[in-house]
Nucleic acid binder design. Structure first.
Length: 583
RNA sequence: GGGCGAUUAGUGUAGCUUGGAUAUCACCUUGGAUUUCUAAUCCGAGAACACGGGUUCGAAUCCUGUAUCGCCCA
């Protein structure tokens, strides 16, 4: 059950009627068609047409024009509820019965696109931390929103299984004892005490990674050892790649466990080394030499000169092949994109803003190779109040600990409200509330805005957050249980609908429009807004309209309750909030 | 030094692509309702578009300059 974009359809239905009225009034051209859109002022109508631009042509005041357009509009269309003129606008309200009909008979939408969304793709060098969470939450929210819109989505994780981070980790595990690690980290002033998740490999092994980084500063032999490993990995040396894998795989598994706790999972994993092994990187490097942008540096390295392509600054060269003939990270990224296009007909990458330049360079190189560019969503960093997070320096908040804390705080709240409830459901509810709140607090912020991590904000259970929505959903479930199985009516009686019911119907009708809008603008926060508003509208409806009155069941209210329950549940699914049926 | 992005009540935020009505939702301060089918509720009041210039009948929204913050390049 997916539903349709009702407001978009309403505009389409109404367009011909407007055309007639507009002609009669004497307005020329078609410009007005693009101005007919969703009302900014929801209290006035669902869609509206501003008449200010016509006043010059017609030499009349906008409100006069609006009024005469309204005169000529044939409001007998079933979709039109009300047409009014106000303050120079023509406002149309959708007909409630029309909206209800469509809510009750949603049409399946066929998915035409296969979209591959690559997100998170964090280096497997330590536990998943809060700085990386934004990528995962945004990425997974996109995955969920596209699925809610009926599309065929693959969630993809690019595993950086070679190169520096993994090289250091591998070197450390092969060359340092636990005593080495502890003494190095103590001197470097990095915490060595393992927390409650100390049994996980990601938490254990990150100490080795940090120790090797600290040691590297003083001991040049570390660099030599690591560099040798990296070089071999870039030649796709099977022995080294397999040692690397032994080093990082348990760490990656630990990270994925954390992500799974947040409701985030992946459909496919692709290793960077794959593109060296299969030779595709080599082929790409050869064909880049035919590019007009191609150049060779003194040391024999190959690059593309991007100055003419709008890359500014001191370094306009995009190096894709070293002097010794080997490839670079970015080169493998090109091969990766080529491969991704074989898996889907749309690509979406979720990247931190620090990757903007790199992404642009890769984009130009892809163009040179006649490979389409992916769509990219950039997000600003999450930083700690005292600076950027860094796994290397040990300046991090681990996601495992944040989720524990979130669960703990949720538990305190739930215990206070529900003293009647048994331990087991208490734990389940608080975990769901903790995870949902953490996600929602990230998803509801516009991606390009920087976030400063503060415990109070991250764990806020205030009204403008997930629990408010979850509780609304649980409430609708409770009422549904109370009412029991009933034969629901197939429509509503307008005469007994109050304002809160009408607002609720309007809100539900806009779900798919809001979802599409959020997807198209790449702003999940817009859909989060709709969902918060939906919960609020449901609560107002609930206060005014009882379903169970004594022994009687009000079937119309039950129908609306059931619709609201369904919309809340689907909305929650689409943003990664867990829709509990009881809390 | 150059490039990109951000700046909205005491706080956190929405709206900005496509200029238009009373600038969103909360926290907060404050007044009230109801105690139900789950009160993690509902209704009301208070307070904001960084600063300057431009385009326009009309600018939070577009252009431009300045300041501050973040990211990147060197």
């Amino acid at each position: 059950m997916l539903g349709v974009e009702q407001m978009r359809d309403l505009i389409e239905e109404v367009l011909p009627v407007f055309e007639i009225a507009i002609n009669k009034v004497g307005i020329e051209g078609n410009h007005w068609k693009s101005m007919l859109g969703r009302s900014r002022e929801a209290s006035q109508g669902d869609i509206s047409l501003p008449c200010f631009p016509f006043s010059k042509q017609l030499r009349l005041a906008p409100d006069v024009i609006a009024e005469s357009i309204v005169e000529y509009i044939d409001s007998s269309l079933p979709s039109i509820g009300e047409v009014t003129a106000s303050g120079g606008y023509v406002n149309i309200r959708a007909d409630i019965e029309w909206l209800m009909d469509r809510l009750l008979s949603p049409q399946e939408k066929q998915s035409q696109e296969r979209i591959l969304i690559e997100h998170t793709s964090a280096n497997p060098n330590g536990p998943f931390h809060v700085g990386r969470a934004r990528n995962a939450v945004l990425g997974d929210t996109f995955v969920r929103m596209y699925r809610a819109a009926g599309q065929d989505v693959t969630a993809e994780y690019y595993v950086d299984d070679m190169g520096k981070q993994v090289g250091i980790l591998c070197w450390a595990l092969e060359n340092l004892t636990i005593e080495n690690v502890e003494s190095i980290l103590e001197k470097a002033n990095i915490e060595t005490e393992l927390g409650p998740h100390g049994d996980k490999a990601d938490h254990q092994r990150v100490l080795w990674y940090q120790a090797a980084n600290a040691l590297k500063e003083k001991d040049p032999s570390v660099d030599a050892g690591v560099t040798e490993l990296i070089q071999l990995s870039e030649e796709a040396d099977p022995d080294v790649l397999s040692r690397f894998e032994s080093a990082y795989q348990p760490v990656l598994d630990g990270m994925l466990e954390t992500l799974a706790r947040m409701g985030i999972s992946f459909d496919s994993f692709t290793k960077e080394s794959r593109f060296i092994v299969d030779g595709s990187v080599e082929v790409l490097m050869d064909s880049l030499e035919n590019s007009e942008l191609h150049g060779t540096a003194e040391n024999g390295a190959h690059f593309l000169e991007l100055e003419t392509k709008g890359v500014k600054g001191k370094s306009t060269k995009f190096f894709y092949r070293r002097g010794d003939g080997s490839s670079l990270y970015a080169t493998r990224d090109l091969a990766y994109h080529q491969w991704k296009w074989s898996q889907a007909n749309r690509l979406l990458n979720i990247l931190g803003e620090d990757h903007k330049l790199q992404s642009k360079q890769v984009g130009i190189a892809l163009e040179e190779l006649k490979i389409k560019n992916p769509d990219v969503v950039f997000y600003a960093f999450t930083k700690l109040a005292d600076g950027k997070m860094s796994t290397r320096r040990g300046n991090v908040v681990f996601m495992d600990d944040l989720l524990d804390e979130a669960q703990g705080r949720a538990l305190a709240v739930v215990q206070e409200i529900r003293s009647d409830i048994e331990e087991e459901s208490l734990a389940k509810i608080s975990e769901a509330v903790g995870v949902s709140s953490t996600r929602f607090n990230i998803a509801r912020i516009s991606p390009e805005k920087g976030i400063t991590f503060r415990w109070e904000d991250a764990l806020s259970l205030e009204k403008d957050s997930a629990p408010f929505i979850m509780y609304s959903h649980a409430r609708s479930c409770s009422i549904s249980r109370r009412a029991g199985a009933q034969l629901l009516p197939t429509g509503v009686d307008m005469k007994v609908l109050d304002e809160t019911a009408i607002a609720l119907i309007r809100r539900m009708a806009k779900m798919q429009d809001e979802l599409q809008n959020a997807i198209q603008l790449a702003r999940p926060n817009l859909f989060c807004d709709w969902l918060s508003g939906m919960a609020g509208d449901y609560n107002r409806f609930y206060r005014e309209n009882h379903v169970v009155v004594g022994d009687e069941i009000n079937l119309q209210n039950l129908l609306l309750n059931e619709l609201a329950r369904d919309h809340l549940r689907r909305g929650c699914d689409a943003v990664g909030i867990i829709p509990l049926e009881e809390m």
